[in-house]
Design a protein around this nucleic acid. Sequence first.
DNA 1: GAATGTGAAAATCTTCACAGCT
DNA 2: AGCTGTGAAGATTTTCACATTC
Lengths: 209, 209
Amino acid sequence: MSRKISFTGIERLALYYRYLTSLSRSERAFISSEELAKAVGHTAAQVRRDFSCFGTFGTPGKGYDTAELEATLSEILGKEKTWNVVLVGVGNLGSALLAYRGFQSQHYTVVAAFDTDIRKIGKHLEGLEIQDSRDLADLIPRTGAKIGIVSVPGDAAQEVVDALVSAGIKGILNFAPTRVTVPKGVIVQHVDLSIELDRLCYGLVHPPM
Amino acid sequence: MSRKISFTGIERLALYYRYLTSLSRSERAFISSEELAKAVGHTAAQVRRDFSCFGTFGTPGKGYDTAELEATLSEILGKEKTWNVVLVGVGNLGSALLAYRGFQSQHYTVVAAFDTDIRKIGKHLEGLEIQDSRDLADLIPRTGAKIGIVSVPGDAAQEVVDALVSAGIKGILNFAPTRVTVPKGVIVQHVDLSIELDRLCYGLVHPPM
DNA sequence: GAATGTGAAAATCTTCACAGCT
DNA sequence: AGCTGTGAAGATTTTCACATTC
């Protein structure tokens, strides 16, 4: 018990959780750290260590009760409730994200979409009316959203992020190729597509050895 | 000199590089590790350590020659040539990626797009004719592409990845919510959008302290 | 017997701090 | 004086290995 989960550990927790939900109506009531590890590409020790950060919920000799583990992970990951999400920037990527199933799931709902382009404002997409970005400060607080997705051009990102933060957003998923800064208490996750490609590219140029 | 760059270090290199290119026609001929660090949100020591993995190209008392550094990073990151890329899965996300500027840049060109949906095959998108995924093995070798982007549904991902690998693809950017396996010598980068959200969500539920 | 939970070791990554170059 | 490059220290993350529990 009691050690802080590592940053990458959270990603693993989400993977364990996803795997468990994919098992769904399997008969198997228990799963071992070994099997979980294999499923997500890590080691059994890693799995046990990750869990140990949050308590002790396995049974020696048997493993983890799948239903119970799923529920526990759900709670740890904050999936007990559905999160309202807003999206700013309905360009190519933004529209795709609006339609993305992972973002319109049991746990997340996009409740508002914004853009500055007058030609897009008022149009409907995936059941949402696109709003004027200038109304962001008014509209977001009413939705109760705490998460914002930013898919605007790089040079607009910081400005949008500032507006989101003012409007009460606490977590930002930033797809713009710009490292934005936020005040303490707000979290940003960067999803930087061209840098993912760059990393791949580096790997190809520098073979493992 | 001589220490292996860390996994995350490569991401930093790409950020340094991006920052340098954004400076473009600035007068300043030299930049210090301090300034580079500030620009990308790391420490000066980290910057110097990252560079030291590849040689010694700074000048004590002055800093790094911006043009020279840009060229060196370009080479390290494998950006001397333009990489041909193929994309499989022209759904919402795939179409957006096709249109994404970061993927159609000086260093990357998407040269072929594939889908299994008969209604999409033959259509044109971003100047590319969508090809039948079954022809992947024939067509890819002709393009000389070594990088593949996978944006198909999760249950099709492994199958597509296997086909890409057979067709000679060495690096895969996988947007499907499935951890795929590949033979040695092939690299996969996962871009797992719902897990990014999960991580954000975890951060919101567990405030720093 | 089988698999957990966890100290302790190992590996990896980051920062410090300073000698040495310009 | 100013800033790099790097050995050594520190911090973090992963793995080992085994006592403990079922």
